[in-house]
Write a protein that binds this DNA or RNA. Sequence first.
DNA 1: ACAAATTTTTAGATTTGCCTAAATTTATTT
DNA 2: AAATAAATTTAGGCAAATCTAAAAATTTGT
Lengths: 224, 224
Amino acid sequence: MTNLFLMTRSEENYIKTIFHLGGSDSVPVATNAIAEQMETKPSSVTDMAKKLADKGLVHYKKYQGVSLTEIGIKTALSIIRKHRLWEVFLVKKLDFTWDEVHEVAEQLEHIKSEKLIDKIDELLDFPKYDPHGDPIPSKDGKFMVRDKELLSDLEVKAGGVCVGVKDTSAPFLKFLDKNGIALGKTIEVLEKEDFDQSLHIKIDQSELHISHQIASNLYVKKNN
Amino acid sequence: MTNLFLMTRSEENYIKTIFHLGGSDSVPVATNAIAEQMETKPSSVTDMAKKLADKGLVHYKKYQGVSLTEIGIKTALSIIRKHRLWEVFLVKKLDFTWDEVHEVAEQLEHIKSEKLIDKIDELLDFPKYDPHGDPIPSKDGKFMVRDKELLSDLEVKAGGVCVGVKDTSAPFLKFLDKNGIALGKTIEVLEKEDFDQSLHIKIDQSELHISHQIASNLYVKKNN
DNA sequence: ACAAATTTTTAGATTTGCCTAAATTTATTT
DNA sequence: AAATAAATTTAGGCAAATCTAAAAATTTGT
Ligand SMILES: [Mn+2]
Ligand SMILES: [Mn+2]
Ligand SMILES: [Mn+2]
Ligand SMILES: [Mn+2]
């Protein structure tokens, strides 16, 4: 049980990536998938897989992919908790916009201080979701899985509240801002174009036409 | 003019140490002094001195010691600004005690985001001093040099306000807490023991006997 | 001034994290 | 069931940051 506090930044980033690609299940993740996600080379992933396996954070057998151990999952959740809490902090306390927070949170998530992150959590009044609608794991690694669906999967006439984004890239988020789409807004599907799957929607008071591209990156919590 | 944003953590720590040992003057600092301060070996310092000289951050000639260039000084002040602002943040916003902040600030000072630190500055209402009484450089590298003297240098009957500590180690700070000594308190020298230089002082309402060790690590701003 | 002590640098290793190129294993086609 | 393609690992190397041991320069003491 190698101490989590002496993990390097690189190791933490690998663990986080493996979690995001494989979920908390012990689904093995392919070397190439990790390499692509981390913008590194497969051979580097293999090296790290061995090291993380030695440390007991992942299961690894040659050619069989990588999956997180119990400890690996806990570690991943702890890093993700920090990342998302910092994102909330930046938005709520420092007036960052939701398209600016990710880059800084990528750095802040590696700060080693349990007290620090717990105090940030308290300062923010224990938020459950980050600025992109993603759930924040609690100290003991639990988090809410909100039932939500992609706007593109709703039927005509169906509606709900916008609760998250799938694509969290700055360009997409800025596009949403420009079109008055934000978390918490009420959305209703007015019309669906069969040809290109584009949608005519009502968002709060106004109406808007959006492409399938957009609709398939917006999460909605359906009305009862 | 090598971009400050691509400095490694190690480079930043060297620059900060050279600043603390040499001041903002271009006083050359000895290799051994840097090594001792950073708990590393002189040969490592020599290596880094060459690298920093290549980057234009220090002046370095073999056997002549290291001193900061203009850019080096600016860089040092920027890191110190971040360190001290984070320390204030931790105390004022997250209820850390002044003996807990340094270690975390050592990590936070390396976060790369100009917007982040400027927003923290604003959130704290542009503090001029950190929790240990050390001045916080402004964005453009200026800082107040408060006139202060060591309590051990005061005459009997002289007095003032406690404005800083020289030793910022956790044990010393905890000792001060235990004895009711804190920044902002009024101090008067009641008696001085010639034999061991210990002092009898009045601090706010109470009286206290302190050793020379303690008195020579407390800064006081004398009354007019 | 010159020998001795001290400081500093150089030379050569080590570890971490990454790379390229080549070899190997696994998966997919014919 | 081969043959081909794709994925993965191995081998060997490189840069950063560190170390130890030895050499060189500087400083100190007589
Ligand atoms: Mn993010
Ligand atoms: Mn997020
Ligand atoms: Mn400090
Ligand atoms: Mn301080």
